[in-house]
């Protein structure tokens, strides 16, 4: 009766699309709701009148959040983390992927190094020894603690290796005949051919650094060194009265905690939302490139 290719059953299609639309709405509803809360007055929020649209529109929650020095400082540390971490991650990813993408006859130690890196995703020392090594290397309370321990993202390296392996060998041989060394090959042939995959991986790395919260939480003894997500973790999820100054407490009595939280959440989400169109354009390629073959 109904056929997929030629005669779509209208009832089935309508039902299917309605279900998908409902699903998407359920997905995005919590996010829009919190956004609406952040622009509403505390009284409107408390009386439960806010659903998907701000009630008694106000920017006072945002004013309160941006006037909190700790929030701005944490935001700054997150930006710093992304600006330092992304280039370092990318540089090391490329520098590791290039040699490992070689054939064994070109790089005889390849197998050894592949295993050297693979072992680290299969087995780890665990939380406590990891923490101690970082403390031993003197990185506690430094932004480098958030960058150096994860400076070589192995999964991204694998993605990059798979991409580098698609570079036609003839291209490389021709350049080699002309006297190009490995540095030149990487810089002049491999990298220009890999712009899409590098863009993809960079975006993932930026999102990863922006979203990371656990390392900041345990590697920064001084809360004033927290990146934004760690700061929010302590403020929203596990509120610790010690973190709030008296001024905060005073104002919190006036401004409902709930709308303030909503504003903080939305500001922390904003960079991801801005990057999202680009992310979305690239990640489908990225995923199918790296993870599943066959």
């Amino acid at each position: 009766m109904a056929s997929k290719m030629l005669r779509p059953a209208p009832l089935f299609n309508i039902l299917n699309q309605v279900l998908l639309a409902v699903l998407a709405i359920v997905c995005v509803f919590p996010i829009v709701h919190v956004l609406a809360l952040s622009f509403s007055t505390s009284t409107a929020a408390a009386s439960g009148r806010v659903t998907l649209w701000p009630v008694e529109f106000t920017l006072s929650s945002y004013r309160f959040v941006t006037d909190t020095p700790a929030f701005g400082r944490a935001f700054g540390i997150s930006v710093q983390r992304v600006l330092l971490g992304m280039p370092i991650n990318m540089l090391l990813t490329v520098l590791v992927a290039y040699p490992l993408a070689k054939e064994r006859r070109q790089f005889r130690a390849r197998t050894f190094f592949v295993w050297f890196f693979l072992v680290t995703i299969l087995f780890s020392g665990g939380l406590i020894p990891w923490y101690m090594v970082i403390r031993l290397t003197g990185l506690i309370d430094s932004v480098w603690a958030l960058i150096l321990p994860g400076a070589v993202p192995i999964f991204n390296v694998i993605l990059m290796i798979n991409f580098f392996r698609n570079v036609p060998p003839a291209l490389e041989e021709a350049a080699y005949m002309d006297g190009a060394g490995h540095g030149t090959l990487l810089w002049r042939i491999y990298l220009p051919l890999s712009v899409p995959v590098i863009a993809t991986v960079s975006l993932f790395v930026i999102v990863g650094h922006w979203n990371a919260w656990f390392d900041g939480l345990i590697l920064m003894n001084n809360p004033s060194r927290y990146p934004l997500q760690s700061y929010l973790q302590t403020i929203i999820i596990n509120p610790d009265p010690k973190m709030l100054t008296e001024r905060d407490l005073e104002i919190l009595k006036v401004i409902n905690n709930r709308t303030t939280r909503a504003a903080q959440i939305f500001i922390a989400m904003l960079p991801i939302l801005v990057a999202y169109p680009f992310l979305q354009r690239y990640f489908t390629t990225g995923i199918t490139l790296g993870s599943v073959k066959g």
Binding site: L95, V96, T120, F123, S124, P129, P149, V152, L186
Partner: peptide, 21 residues
Amino acid sequence: AMLAPAVVLVLVYAYGPMLGI
């Protein structure tokens, strides 16, 4: 030479903790 910096970092921050076991 290309691998060297990454190898050092992985030795310290991935293999180091394994010693810590």
